[in-house]
Design a protein around this nucleic acid. Structure first.
Lengths: 208, 208
DNA sequence: ACCTGAACACCGTTCAAGT
DNA sequence: ACCTGAACACCGTTCAAGT
């Protein structure tokens, strides 16, 4: 009971080597928690440093900027989303149920990561966009494009530019996810509407 | 040349009565300019006060909070958008061209007010949402719902819950607008895609 | 009624210096 | 290589006091 290290300083359970095992990762983890609990507005580098138990200047070693930290956060968001979508995809399914489960996975991510989603699609990362981030976005789009492409090959949906079809379907899914993430639509209502939305996408609004 | 008032302090061309005609309006106008030119991140109440030529504490008289200023900005955005959509709507048109011009108007607003749009749909205004704001949003949704309802009455589109149809169409349009506003899709590409997107909404993805 | 000036507690960022 | 402490210039918000 005598020579214990100081009580764990928050997220860290290991006795840290006084050069803090992996500060970068710890900062990102803590940032995401704060983002989820208190929103971007109340995300400060100094408080983050406090939460993680380092000096306020320490984050500067790992992120040149506050924006760089936010970009990194968005990046991990896209990666996790891409993984969730790929994990949820069952290529053996026929088109309609396959797309439905894709849509539910996307909507689920939006519901459970609303603030993060806003950050991911925020119009900040303009000049360079960090490359890794666009890569992760492309991975997401690619997922949907694959679902669409497969359906075309099976003649389950019309032929035509896959990119345009992906845009139409993607826009509808993203619009629903956005409405949900920002509180216009309640999560349950959105999930309930998915099936009908997809039905309408498949069959069109024209009578017959 | 001797007794001129000091050169105009930015937006104000009148010699101001030293209690500043309408500070609230001036702040909102200046804020929107800054938003458009430099983004939300670099929007500070103090700089705003400087731009408009008042003390840094003056804005506090008109907006209890920085967030209150942003809410007001979003509110005017929704109102201007609702007006633009109503102005662009021609009820005499058949459904497809009518919806196309509605979509173009929405997309046009998103392109010309990208930062503002992000603010409008930002997940900040949660608790109360200011009432006027949801009213303005409802006005927008109502616009689309009217287009849809009219088409149903003419048997141009299928029967069924107008709210669900509005959601499907609205989600697709909003998704496209969002992709464009945050730079994933170029404005020209988005405008080019509108017609085909609407065609696909009308006719569906299923063959035949 | 509306605005100012000073004050307070907080930021982000930089940079010499420490380990 | 990584972190600290002090320093700088900036915030948002409040509140007595001025007009």
């Amino acid at each position: 009971m005598t020579s214990m290290p100081k009580p764990e300083t928050r997220e860290i359970r290991e006795t840290r080597p006084y050069h803090h095992g992996d500060l970068r990762t710890a900062l990102l983890a803590s940032a995401e928690r704060t983002l989820r609990e208190k929103g971007v507005t109340s995300l400060s580098l100094r408080e983050l440093a406090r939460d993680v138990g380092v000096s306020h200047a320490a984050p500067g070693r790992h992120f040149k900027d506050k924006q760089a930290l936010l970009n990194a956060l968005a990046e991990t968001g896209f990666e996790r989303m891409a993984e969730a979508l790929e994990a949820a995809d069952d290529p053996a399914l026929p088109f309609q149920p396959r797309l439905t489960s894709f849509a539910r996975a996307y909507l689920g991510f939006a519901i459970n990561n609303a603030e993060l989603l806003e950050l991911m699609y925020a119009r900040k990362h303009e000049p360079d966009a960090s490359e890794q981030m666009t890569a992760a976005l492309d991975r997401t789009v690619g997922s949907l494009e694959r679902v669409i492409g497969a359906a075309q090959q099976q003649n389950e949906i019309i032929a035509g530019d896959p990119a345009q079809l992906t845009l139409t379907v993607g826009a509808a899914l993203h619009g629903l996810a956005a409405f949900t993430a920002n509180g216009i639509y309640a999560p349950d209502a959105a999930l309930d509407a998915v099936e009908e939305l997809i039905h309408q996408l498949l069959h069109g609004l024209k009578p017959r």
